[in-house]
Simulated assay, not measured.
Amino acid sequence: MTTTTAPSPVLEANGVTMRFGGLTAVRSVDLTVNSGEIVGLIGPNGAGKTTFFNCLTGLYVPTEGTVSYKGTVLPPKPHLVTSAGIARTFQNIRLFANMTVLENVLVGRHTRTKEGLWSALLRGPGFRKAEAASHERAMELLEFIGLAHKADHLSRNLPYGEQRKLEIARALASEPGLLLLDEPTAGMNPQETRATEELVFAIRDQGIAVLVIEHDMRFIFNLCDRVACLVQGEKLVEGTSEVVQGDERVVAAYLGTPFEGAPGADELAEVEAAEASGAQSTTSTEGKAQ
């Protein structure tokens, strides 16, 4: 006899709400990602997808609701979320342009390096061993994404599609149990998109659950086990690709056709402005921290 293990929840978002002043960008969203799953998050511009991602990864503190990873509620601090086991990429590539491909991946290893300040300054045996292990793991990841031969190249000199791959490798360097991808195929040609699809499948096959935002419907429906659609910050529908594609409300939302309870253009514009304002304040905070 063979026994099968039921998938266990990796991510559980319960009642996540995010308000910017009097504007609600995300409203009471529930979402679960199980082990071994690829889940997609879709929705028209201004739907609150990136705001929801930012709530999951600690960049925003949700106004209401909780986010749990493997049963433990996450603290609203990005570095603690990464340490717990969640990694992400961004819609706008955030590589260190003047660092090599290898150095960018090594940056992602810092949450898994246990050596302290004095060990690094004195460069003792423990530090050298950890450094060698990080280098070996970084090269394994570059081999995995097909960029080992460019380890010494500056990241700014990589073609766009390879920069996207490098950002994924840097996220994987933190050894996550869940990877969040924010529009990973944005700006890619069909060949690059197909390569990204194969890469995400390979990541899932390594035991890492994936949650992905994407505007390319062909990509998302080919890739995902389940898809959730947000409209004006609310989850409109969730299910298999077939269920979501066949939902008239989803079609209406993307075509701009009004349906009962649909947000108006002014409301959508307010949500987009709030998300942009939140992104700018996050970037400003990051700059000060650096």
Rank of each mutant, 00 (worst) to 15 (best):
A273N: 05
L158G: 12
M1Y: 14
F20G: 06
G146Q: 07
A252D: 15
V271F: 02
E115A: 14
I42H: 02
G161K: 00
Y69C: 06
L95F: 09
Y69H: 13
R137V: 11
L122S: 08
K150E: 07
R27V: 11
E248I: 09
F127K: 10
E167M: 09
M139K: 11
L117Y: 04
N34K: 08
T257K: 04
G264R: 02
A6N: 13
G278C: 10
G15L: 08
P44I: 06
A186H: 07
H79I: 10
T257V: 10
I86H: 00
V67K: 01
L255C: 13
T51D: 08
Q206H: 09
N189G: 11
E131W: 13
Q290W: 15
S174K: 01
E140F: 14
V250T: 13
M188W: 08
K165G: 10
T5N: 13
G22Y: 05
L166W: 08
L223V: 12
V73N: 12
N54E: 03
A209S: 12
A274W: 01
Q245K: 05
L59P: 00
V39H: 05
A273M: 07
D182H: 01
E242V: 13
P125N: 15
L31K: 06
E175Y: 01
A202D: 03
N14S: 15
V33D: 01
S174E: 03
A13N: 04
V231C: 09
A148M: 11
F221A: 08
S28G: 11
E136S: 15
R94P: 02
A202C: 06
V26D: 04
S134G: 12
G15T: 04
F53H: 03
A133E: 15
S241C: 12
V73E: 15
S134E: 15
K165H: 11
V29G: 07
P75E: 06
E270G: 03
T63I: 10
D182Y: 00
P125I: 15
S35K: 11
L223H: 00
H215C: 05
P176L: 00
I38F: 00
G58L: 02
A265M: 04
I93N: 02
L236W: 02
L11G: 12
L41F: 00
N92A: 15
L154T: 10
S119F: 06
E140S: 15
A84V: 08
K129H: 12
Q280T: 13
I220Q: 01
D205A: 12
I42N: 04
E167V: 03
F90H: 08
V210S: 02
V212H: 02
T82I: 06
I42S: 06
A273Y: 06
T257A: 11
L268A: 04
E275M: 10
L80G: 06
A253P: 15
R156F: 05
S83Y: 03
T283P: 08
M217E: 03
E242N: 10
L172G: 07
T5D: 12
E238H: 04
L154S: 13
N14F: 13
V10P: 07
E260T: 06
P76G: 02
A252F: 10
P176D: 02
G43D: 05
A151T: 10
